[in-house]
Design a protein around this nucleic acid. Structure first.
Lengths: 197, 197
DNA sequence: GTCTATATACCGATAGAC
DNA sequence: GTCTATCGGTATATAGAC
């Protein structure tokens, strides 16, 4: 659909469309979605705003290209959890899988975490059931007989997971395996109320 | 500076200036700071946009009136921590005080948490050293000899504390004392790596 | 203190030439 | 696929009457 064409220097082996997406992610993360104009994105890429519209039909489309993968990950986790019996072991497995996906989509996740209001406002037409997904996962983690305490611990555990999104800022040298191990331990501990190692 | 004047019916025992601040906080929380226009705020209060500018010199001024108290709390915690020797007991005390302040400024805190990028962008002139404050608290919590693990655990512990900002959404019936007790336990546990109760 | 009216600027999006 | 030019809308902020 997109010919590799002649050896133009848009970006190392990447199309203009991808270059726009990458530049937008960087700017959205630094300045926020609403605070970033498409003119600024186009300037970074080296094209005009009108050219950008050739590749993306709207600003929401561009945001969708960035956010889609991590939203899909969250949605699939919520669906998967529906058929899993709650237990100490399955809780750890679910949190581990969730954490791994978060790490994989780290950059988009950091945007989603820090600019939640603007992004949800812009994309609640595209993802009408995203809030329900997060709610479902939270409810499952709180256990079959939720109490105020187990609900709060579930929220706290998910909050701990999100630290993976910004781990490179605070522990730049730590490899992903270490980050995943520590945060999974923290999240499980928060849910249980005591460590099980 | 602001005469109580005659008994006008601006709001129950409150000035117009306060009514503007309260309406703005509610709208900013629901729609985000940048997504909320001063015209909308003025409409809720029942005045025009021009009248609003009589009370607040700019949109940033209005945001500052909302955010100032919690920023000041964070700054004072960071300053206080500078003279405290790090220990298991002092860590718990600091986290408890921090958590109590967060609960006290819950509404402004929830705005700050969910619209971080927009708010920091709007107010980084007014609070040039706010990021340093949070960094200082985080560094102290990580202990006298920080490792990648202790740094990550410090970030995670502070992240757990922020759950207090949205606790009323997920555990509406829980009293503040219960919320504070649970979250303090979670945060301390995350920092230690095992419970100490 | 509140109003109407307006200045100024930028935004997202489109039209149409090349 | 990229450009120039522009439309329609809305935003913050101000001027000046009452």
């Amino acid at each position: 659909m997109q010919s590799r064409s002649t050896g133009t220097t848009v970006s190392a082996g990447s199309s203009t469309k991808d270059a726009i997406r990458d530049a937008a992610l960087e700017l959205f993360r630094a300045k926020g979605f609403e605070q970033t104009s498409l003119r600024e994105v186009a300037d970074v890429v080296g094209i005009t705003k009108a050219s950008l519209y050739y590749h993306y039909a709207s600003k929401q489309d561009l945001l969708g290209a960035i956010i889609d993968p991590i939203i899909e990950h969250m949605r699939s986790m919520a669906a998967e959890v529906d058929g899993i019996r709650w237990s100490g072991a399955s809780v750890r497995t679910v949190l581990r899988d969730y954490l791994r996906g978060i790490v994989r989509h780290r950059h988009a996740g950091a945007l989603l975490l820090r600019d939640t209001v603007a992004i949800i406002n812009a994309l609640n037409d595209r993802y009408p059931d995203w809030v329900d997904s997060t709610e479902q996962l939270r409810g499952w983690l709180a256990g079959p007989v939720p109490t105020d305490e187990s609900k709060l611990r579930a929220v706290a555990a998910l909050e701990v997971i999100t630290v993976a999104l910004v781990s490179t800022e605070y522990a730049p040298g730590a490899p992903d395996e270490l980050v995943e191990g520590i945060l999974l331990d923290c999240a499980v501990t928060v849910l249980d109320g005591f460590a099980d190692r």
